[in-house]
Design a protein around this nucleic acid. Structure first.
Lengths: 147, 147
DNA sequence: GCAGGAACATTGAATTTTCAACCGTTGAAG
DNA sequence: CTTCAACGGTTGAAAATTCAATGTTCCTGC
């Protein structure tokens, strides 16, 4: 039986804490890599999702980019101002707004991808590809079971 | 030989993304549990760290509670206003400020701990104690190697 | 065809976080 | 001693996020 934490055990053994800590660390690393292009991590996620050329509704995009709805609206405002993406109201359902990646946005993504893959490679080296793959698998099932 | 992500692979296979997603999900669950007491997750972490009765410097506390320095200062301001913690300037090094948990804070932690442990138990059930233990181990070593 | 409820996105105000600059304290070099 | 760089923490302004409320559009039942 794996030791379940008790009242006086430190918070550092809680899964919620470990996830927050690991995320914070990895996110910071990615942040410093992306700083070369001056792009925040959230915008990187948005751009990468849109990079296939298909438009996404705000709802879908919020979910994919791990952002709350109002936060996404305002982030997209900024990105539109930077001409990285643009809005088109969905002709099939006029409540929806589809977001597309501009050419400028696509060009930026092409420069961003190697930076993100560089991090992946770096982690695989320092941490072990085996452990990394295992960790990814466990995270995926955790996410699946939590939805 | 674990498949390393390439330029066109979706962002959902990046470790940074999976960590952000898992953290977001688990954090939300914890948030709704703690809502019973009206305590934000960040304050829960702070209180839990201080619960042993020892004082911590702002620096140490920021690291333990996964908060940036100025953010912690302002969060502590709020918690002092709620009489959950108090500040005492360190007599050994007057640059430092030690934060202590008040009795009110300690009483609150006693109500918070079961909520957090409830989540741990819930995850262990729905996800498997074995997988959870393995995930924790992998996260710990990832954090260690990233420091 | 129309009334009412649900879905989608945005807005403005309030809260929170971040960035850069700052001040007091310490420790070490000269 | 005195000076000066580094440390620890706070502050105010700016930026980002969140909350609650709003405006459209769509869909269902009648």
């Amino acid at each position: 039986m794996s030791d379940s934490p008790s009242a006086d055990s430190p918070i550092t053994v809680h899964l919620a804490y470990l996830l927050a800590q690991a995320n914070r660390e990895i996110n910071r690393q990615l942040e410093t890599r992306l700083r070369v292009e001056g792009v925040p991590v959230e915008q990187w996620r948005i751009l990468k999702v849109l990079a296939d050329g298909n438009g996404r509704s705000m709802g879908d995009l919020a979910e994919a980019a791990l952002l709350n709805h109002p936060t996404l609206t305002k982030t997209i405002d900024r990105m539109v101002a930077d001409s990285l993406v643009y809005r088109i109201s969905d002709p099939r359902d006029r409540r929806k707004v589809l977001i597309f990646c501009s050419d400028r946005g696509k060009a930026l993504v092409r420069r961003l991808v190697p930076l993100a893959l560089g991090q992946e490679a770096f982690i695989a080296e320092n941490y072990g590809g085996k452990a990394m793959a295992q960790l990814k698998r466990l995270l995926e099932t955790l996410i699946e079971r939590s939805g």
